[in-house]
Amino acid sequence: MSVETYSSAKQKIEKEILRLQKQMKSLKVKQRRPIIASIVKSMQDNEITLEEVAEALEKTSARGSSAGSAEPKASLPPKYRHPATQDTWTGRGRPPRWIIDAEAQGQSREDFLIK
């Protein structure tokens, strides 16, 4: 493919992308119009002011931001340990291969409990 052909093909694709992005934006606007109309009607029917909505939004965004910025959960202490390899498992989630193999051989999970 020559440089000119590549350039013109790239320009056509970029124009098409822009056209499709504009079309998507237009569709989103059309989709949102009835929802906004419904919200406005509900606000009028229930005599809700913009200030009340703004206050409610502030409360929910403050709650949401603090929950999202909380420090990560601490990892759980291991509950099971393989005696030979010292591999551990918390007992949550999918069991490790060594637990599955041991149970297939007739051993119990309790044999691996950390005491």
Rank of each mutant, 00 (worst) to 15 (best):
Q21I: 02
Q21R: 09
Q23N: 14
Q23W: 07
M24G: 12
K25I: 11
S26G: 12
S26Y: 08
L27V: 06
L27N: 07
K28Q: 10
K30R: 09
Q31E: 10
R32P: 01
R32K: 13
R33A: 08
R33L: 06
P34R: 00
P34H: 02
I35M: 02
I35G: 01
I36P: 01
I36R: 03
I36A: 05
A37I: 09
A37E: 11
S38C: 09
S38Q: 10
I39N: 04
I39K: 05
V40I: 15
V40S: 05
V40K: 06
K41I: 06
K41S: 14
M43Q: 00
D45Q: 07
D45I: 02
I48L: 01
I48H: 03
T49M: 00
E51W: 12
E51C: 10
E51F: 12
E52R: 03
V53N: 00
A54K: 06
A54V: 11
A54C: 10
A54G: 05
E55P: 02
L57W: 15
K59Y: 15
K59V: 13
T60N: 07
A62K: 08
R63G: 07
R63N: 09
S66C: 12
A67H: 13
A67I: 13
A67R: 14
G68K: 11
G68F: 11
S69T: 08
A70I: 12
E71C: 07
P72Y: 04
K73C: 08
A74E: 14
S75P: 07
S75R: 09
L76K: 11
L76T: 08
L76P: 02
L76I: 07
Y80Q: 00
R81T: 00
H82S: 02
H82R: 03
A84W: 00
T85F: 03
Q86N: 15
T88C: 01
